[in-house]
Deep mutational scan, measured.
Amino acid sequence: GFPHNFQETTYLKPTFCDNCAGFLWGVIKQGYRCKDCGMNCHKQCKDLVVFECKK
């Protein structure tokens, strides 16, 4: 597997964290999205993600 390539992201529609399944709250920059596989997560979850990037 590969490490994720997370970038701070502004979501335009309701989005949930792929790590904890919690809602990504806020208006802008609600969470992080992996540029390579599209995984979404909270800032506090991005260092805890157990799934490797599937590129």
Rank of each mutant, 00 (worst) to 15 (best):
H42Q: 01
A21E: 12
C17H: 01
L12M: 15
Q7W: 05
T9H: 12
N5S: 11
F6I: 06
W25G: 04
Q30A: 02
G1W: 03
D36W: 12
N19A: 14
K43L: 11
C34F: 01
P3Y: 15
V27Y: 13
F2D: 10
F6M: 13
G38N: 14
K35T: 12
C34D: 06
K54S: 09
I28G: 07
V49I: 05
Q30S: 03
F2K: 10
K29Q: 10
F23G: 05
D36Y: 05
N5R: 08
K43Q: 11
T9C: 12
Y11A: 06
L24V: 06
C20N: 00
C41A: 13
F51A: 11
T15Q: 04
N5D: 10
D47A: 11
R33G: 09
Q44G: 15
A21G: 10
T15M: 08
A21H: 10
M39T: 09
K29E: 04
E8A: 14
V50Q: 14
E52Q: 08
M39S: 09
I28C: 07
K55T: 06
D18E: 10
H42F: 00
N19C: 11
K35L: 13
R33T: 13
T9Y: 13
Q44N: 06
K13W: 09
T15Y: 03
K54P: 02
L48S: 14
D18W: 15
M39G: 10
Q44W: 13
G38R: 13
Y11G: 03
R33C: 15
L24S: 05
N5K: 08
P3L: 13
D36V: 05
T10Q: 04
C17D: 00
K29D: 02
C34A: 01
T10Y: 05
G26E: 03
F16T: 05
G26M: 05
H4T: 00
F51L: 11
D18P: 01
W25Y: 07
R33Q: 06
T15F: 04
K29S: 10
L24F: 13
C53D: 11
N5H: 13
H42W: 05
E8F: 10
V27N: 04
G26Y: 03
V50H: 07
K46P: 08
R33E: 15
Q7G: 09
E8Y: 10
G38D: 13
D47M: 07
P3W: 15
T9I: 07
G22Q: 08
K46S: 10
Y11T: 05
Y11P: 01
K43I: 15
Y11S: 14
V50T: 10
G22D: 07
C34V: 01
G31R: 01
G26V: 01
H42C: 04
C17G: 00
C37N: 01
V50G: 11
L48E: 11
P14Q: 00
P3H: 15
K46D: 03
K55L: 01
V49W: 14
Y11N: 07
F2W: 03
Q30I: 01
C17R: 01
V50N: 07
D18A: 13
W25A: 08
L12F: 11
Q44D: 15
K43A: 12
V50R: 09
C20R: 01
Q44A: 13
N40Y: 05
P14Y: 04
K54D: 07
G26I: 00
C45T: 01
Q30W: 02
P3V: 14
C20Q: 00
T9E: 04
C17I: 01
G38L: 11
Y11W: 08
D18Y: 05
C37Q: 01
W25N: 04
D36G: 15
C17P: 00
C41V: 14
K13F: 08
G26K: 03
H42M: 01
V27M: 06
Q30N: 03
D47I: 07
C41E: 04
K55P: 04
F16R: 07
L12G: 12
K29I: 06
N5Q: 11
T9G: 06
I28K: 14
E52T: 12
K54E: 10
K29T: 05
F16Y: 13
Q44F: 14
K54N: 09
F23L: 15
L48K: 13
T10K: 03
D36H: 08
C53P: 09
L12V: 04
G26W: 06
V50F: 15
F23S: 04
K29G: 09
K43V: 15
F2H: 12
G31P: 00
W25T: 15
G38P: 10
H4V: 00
Y11L: 12
A21M: 08
L24Y: 02
F51H: 04
C34S: 00
F51C: 11
C41D: 01
F23C: 08
K46Y: 11
K55S: 14
K46G: 13
P3Q: 15
M39L: 09
N5G: 11
F23V: 09
L12R: 08
C20S: 00
G38Y: 03
G31K: 01
G26L: 03
N19V: 12
A21K: 13
V50E: 14
V27A: 10
Q44R: 14
A21D: 09
F23P: 04
H4Y: 01
F23R: 06
M39I: 09
T10L: 04
C41S: 11
T15E: 04
K35V: 09
M39D: 06
P14R: 01
C37A: 00
L24G: 03
K13I: 06
T9L: 08
C17Q: 01
E8L: 12
N19T: 12
Q44T: 07
G31S: 03
G22N: 05
C37S: 02
D18C: 06
A21L: 15
F16V: 04
P14K: 02
C41I: 13
K13E: 02
V49F: 13
D47F: 08
I28S: 09
V49L: 06
E8C: 10
K13Y: 13
K54G: 05
C45P: 00
W25H: 07
K46I: 14
C37W: 02
